[in-house]
Structure formats: structure tokens, C-alpha cells
């Protein structure tokens, strides 16, 4: 397969950046999107052009490092998949593929397709945890949690923190990310003591970081590699309104 790539190139955070075009040839349909970019990078290096910087690590869809906007869709056209799990067989031979970094004020570009997503870490730091010191935990089976509750919490906890929700949201909102963590901990009995304070602090932090607001368009849910439901956003709204009214 052959493709024409239009890719965002930006040397540093200060650089203005521009779109550049590259052809890639002899791509196997079994390659992942990132492996295709590897091939491009080998090519570029051979030609003496600096290779493209893009974030990646585990390449099996769990670390959340990869962060590519492919033809206007976060992680590309394949549902429930990160870019590292997206294979070239999903594209047509000869396609033009536009690859851009996540775009959000809260995610400044560091280089090419690499952005700074530390704002998401700071949201968790604001309260996305259960305050239990090592050693003070009770016997694990002393706390019974129904299978349904546990599974629901797991659905929310499955978030990989990639930021695709922010990237795809028309308003660059981090509601789905924040809601997933708030819901995971609010659902569990362990999370009850800090429940109200947690949601208030996390939302305040989210707002401070410069993310946009949710307008219920649900683009986040559509691109989430872990298919986290927007019903968790409603849950977070509920948690917040309850926390504010008590």
C-alpha cells in the first residue's frame, strides 16, 4: 500500500509549526499506524531529515502514550482502539492521511506530534485518590462490594489517560477523563469519606487547567479507546451538584 501523509511538524514549543507532506511506500496492511510512522522515520533519517517525534510506548493499547489525530479523529477511524492498535488495513491504498497533534490550550505542543498532557496528572493530584497510607488497610474481604458495583467501577477505571477525549471534544473539555476517575472512586465504598471533597477539587483543577466545558456532544465517548460511557459525566455532574448542595 502507498499513502500520502500530511503531518504537523513543529521543532519546539516556541516554533510556529506547519503541515508537511511525505509519501510512504510499500506499507503492509498488517502494519500498525505507528509502525508505518517508524518506516517513515527510517526514510527521513536516511534522507538526512529529522525524524518525526510522536509519543508511543507499550504499543498494545494500554499505556495511553500514543496521541495522534488521524484525519480529524482521535486515534483514527477504528473504534475502541488507540493509534498503536490501528492497522493500515483500515485505510485504502493511495489515501491521503492527515496527522496532527492533540489540540488544546491545556496540551501545549512540545514537538511535532508530542504534546504535554501533565494537566491530566494534575487533575488526579487534586483528589483522584483514596487517602490510605501503606499499612493501614483492613482485610480485603472485610469489605464486600457487589459484582455489579465492582464491574461498573472497573468500566470507569479502565481509562488509560490518553487524552483522546480532550482532543476530540469540540471544546477541548476533559470531562470524560475527570468523570471516569470521579466515578470509579465514588462508586466504591472505600471512596466514600472523600467523595464530596474529591469531586469539587478535581473539577476546580480541571477548570483551572484551561480545558473547555462539556456541551454534551459525546465526541469523547466515540473516540475513547476504552469506550468509557458519557453516563459517567452525568454521574460526575450529579456528584458535583450533590456535593455543592450539602
Amino acid at each position: 500500500m502507498n499513502f500520502r501523509l500530511k503531518i504537523w511538524r513543529q521543532r519546539s514549543a516556541e516554533d510556529r509549526g506547519r503541515m508537511a507532506e511525505y509519501p510512504v511506500k510499500d506499507v503492509s496492511p498488517d502494519m500498525s499506524f505507528l509502525e508505518m510512522l517508524d518506516v517513515l522515520n527510517e526514510d527521513l533519517t536516511q534522507k538526512g531529515e529529522e525524524p518525526l517525534a510522536f509519543e508511543h510506548d507499550c504499543r498494545e493499547g494500554i499505556c495511553g502514550a500514543c496521541s495522534l489525530m488521524i484525519n480529524g479523529i482521535a486515534h483514527g477511524p477504528e473504534r475502541a482502539a488507540t493509534a498503536c492498535q490501528l492497522h493500515m488495513r483500515h485505510f485504502k491504498d493511495g489515501d491521503t492521511l492527515t496527522v496532527e497533534p492533540w489540540r488544546a490550550k491545556a496540551f501545549p505542543v512540545l514537538r511535532d506530534l508530542v504534546v504535554d498532557r501533565s494537566a491530566l496528572d494534575r487533575i488526579v493530584q487534586a483528589g483522584g485518590f483514596i487517602s490510605v497510607n501503606t499499612g493501614s488497610a483492613p482485610e480485603a474481604n472485610g469489605l464486600l462490594i457487589s459484582k455489579e458495583t465492582s464491574e461498573k467501577a472497573m468500566e470507569a477505571a479502565a481509562c488509560i489517560g490518553c487524552g483522546a477525549c480532550v482532543a476530540s471534544c469540540k471544546n477541548a473539555s476533559a470531562m470524560l477523563f475527570t468523570a471516569a476517575k470521579v466515578s470509579h472512586l465514588a462508586l466504591l465504598p472505600q471512596g466514600q469519606p472523600e467523595r464530596a471533597a474529591r469531586v469539587k477539587k478535581m473539577i476546580a483543577r480541571m477548570d483551572e487547567e484551561g480545558f473547555g466545558n462539556c456541551t454534551n456532544q459525546y465526541e469523547c465517548e466515540a473516540v475513547c479507546p476504552k469506550e468509557i460511557s458519557v453516563s459517567f459525566i452525568a454521574r460526575m455532574n450529579r456528584e458535583y451538584l450533590k456535593a455543592q448542595s450539602t
Binding site: 483514596i130 483492613p138 480485603a140 462490594i145 459484582k147 465492582s150 472497573m154 470509579h184 466504591l188 471512596g191
Partner: peptide, 14 residues
């Protein structure tokens, strides 16, 4: 025990 207390959603029985 520690991980359960942190809210790790381990698989559960009914």
C-alpha cells in the same frame, strides 16, 4: 489488602 483499600476494582464474586 492495600490495593483493595486504594480502590483497585478487583474482580468479585456475587
Amino acid at each position: 489488602d492495600q490495593c483493595a483499600a486504594q480502590g483497585v476494582p478487583f474482580a468479585r464474586e456475587y
